[in-house]
Amino acid sequence: MNFFDLRWDIVWNYRDLFLRGIWVTVSLTICGYLGGLILGILLGLGKTSKSKWIYWPSKIYVDLFRGTPMLVQILIIHLAVIPSIFGQSYGYMVSGIAALILNSAAYVAEIIRAGIQSIDKGQMEAARSLGLTHSKAMVKVILPQAFRRMIPPLGNEFIALLKDSSLVTVIAANDILYASKVVVGAYQRFWEPYLVAAALYLILTYIVTKLVAYIEKRFSNHYNPRKRRSRKLDHPQNNDEGRTAV
């Protein structure tokens, strides 16, 4: 094939399929991520627990889902787990979201655990010495600090999940990659459809990268929406008005 002889019109003809693919990929990723976040926070806290009845199940779960390929997990969940439990399949969306939740929870759990354990022990001691209970110290002192450190790796996890969501094409989910494969099948041309798929994923991950950078900035101590433009001029010794209004 002549490299310069690309025919983008064949992709354009299938634009509806690609638009639907973007929609499927984004909704799969967001649902899987949010579910994974909730489950992952519980597992991450579980991995910092002193009780072996909480620690070991959390650890085994994380090891299991981090130690096996996501592709295998998707196939097992779609073809074995869901039909066995419910007696029928509920389609790629349910299986896909379930697989993404269960998989990302394991990675999120590790981020949460590492974030909590990265906070200096003195912080917990100071909070406890003031009479706070362990859980109150966790909520008021440890987690807010740990959360800030977790933002970049949680953003990475979102990007990784967005890309890994392409694996659901194996259970016939019509995501971005699926649209490309349809075009490939129709025209027997490989460059255009797969390049378009790559470009679409790239655009999506780029948007997420920007979003994470913004969130990171937003949660820093020194963010002040009222004085955003003059932030660089702030002398550390100065009070900025935004904060003094209590």
Partner: peptide
């Protein structure tokens, strides 16, 4: 926890809460 409210402690490394302002540190 009740005992500790009666016993204040000051640490070598200060251990102030870095995500709170000075006044929030004290009032928390």
């Amino acid at each position: 926890n009740e005992i500790r409210t009666e016993v204040g402690m000051v640490f070598q490394q200060f251990n102030l809460f870095p995500h709170m302002t000075v006044i929030e540190n004290i009032t928390m």
